[in-house]
Design a binder for these strands. Structure first.
Lengths: 179, 179
DNA sequence: GATCGCTATGTGCAAAGTCATATACTACCC
DNA sequence: GGGTAGTATATGACTTTGCACATAGCGATC
């Protein structure tokens, strides 16, 4: 999966560091990966013949190893794009915490948890909305970038609405219990 | 993270198989885990003193190893519940595919992709809505279960709305190009 | 009495991902 | 001259996860 993303980012020749930078800028809202993993994956892709690399001098640091996508690499990218949509495995740490929070029998804690969660989710959403404001949607790449960003925004707003609904329900429940 | 979920499910003594069954029924919408991983994790939790186990005969199969949460295990659970909300790493395979689909220059393909995606997301949402219809929301556990389910439903509807928005935009874009 | 499906517990192996660490050059500020 | 920040490439150790496989009892059905 990371393979496809790296091949996609290698539309132009780039060093591992550049790829990671492009990754942080353009793809961090759809996949998380750290530098060491990117380097290792690029190494594997080279062994598999999807990319080639060449060491080049750098103007502002040590030597760079610049990767280029091969025709075979482009084919692999297109094949990945032609696959079925890959649904993510469910992995919601905060939901799991909330799920068992009945165990603690503490509505105040649940409320504080939701408030904290809402703040974090709102921050994420704001970052996406900032990016949206800067996107050029005319060319193919920008158009598709914007499509993906929109999902983050739709989903982010839905999560905030859920936080509010949940906080309301927890408060009502607390009030009902005291009564 | 799975640690907390297993400790939470062990409110009553259960075998690994039972835990996995409870997992599939009650927690699969918030975390994915297969049997082998559950067995391994229970083994580690025992080594760490969070659970104990005892082999017991079964009426309908081979012997069962029944796990019980220790006081230390309960403390570990409460500590986990008191932690900050854990945000998931971004890992959207289908979004990554869509992100690079400009490379293929094929609006028809993008449209088919979104249609397929929408169908899958709608199925997931339906399953959550079916579960919601069967939930008892009065007791602590049911209340918190329902809260988590609601997020899945909010987010699921937002994703469907996004699919429709995206399909509309892709169609418009296709029409504009032909004109 | 053979086979199927469910109950039940595990091992082996590989891929994916996380975190810490080592190295080293350049530019800039103090 | 010294410290910090950014550029740049990696390796080592570890955990988590996924997938396949091995084993075996029990009940029902054919």
């Amino acid at each position: 999966m990371l393979d496809g993303i790296l091949l996609g980012l290698l539309r132009e020749p780039r060093s591992g560091y550049d790829v990671a930078t492009a990754f942080r800028r353009g793809a961090r809202h759809l996949w998380a990966a750290d530098l060491s993993q990117i380097y290792r994956t690029l190494g594997r892709l080279e062994k598999e013949g999807h990319v080639t690399s060449r060491v080049e001098p750098s103007s502002k640091g040590p030597e760079r190893r610049v990767y280029r996508r091969t025709p075979q690499g482009r084919q692999a990218l297109l094949a990945w794009l032609a696959e079925e949509p890959e649904l993510p495995p469910e992995r919601f740490g905060y939901l799991a915490q909330l799920f068992f929070m009945g165990e603690a029998r503490d509505n105040g804690r649940t409320l504080a948890f939701l408030k904290d969660l809402k703040r974090r989710l709102a921050e994420r959403l704001e970052r996406l909305e900032e990016i949206e404001a800067t996107i050029e949607t005319e060319d193919d790449h920008g158009f598709h970038t914007h499509l993906t960003l929109r999902l983050g925004i739709h989903a982010g707003r839905a999560r905030l609405a859920w936080c509010e609904e949940s906080m309301r329900r927890v408060r009502q429940r607390g009030a009902r219990r005291k009564a």
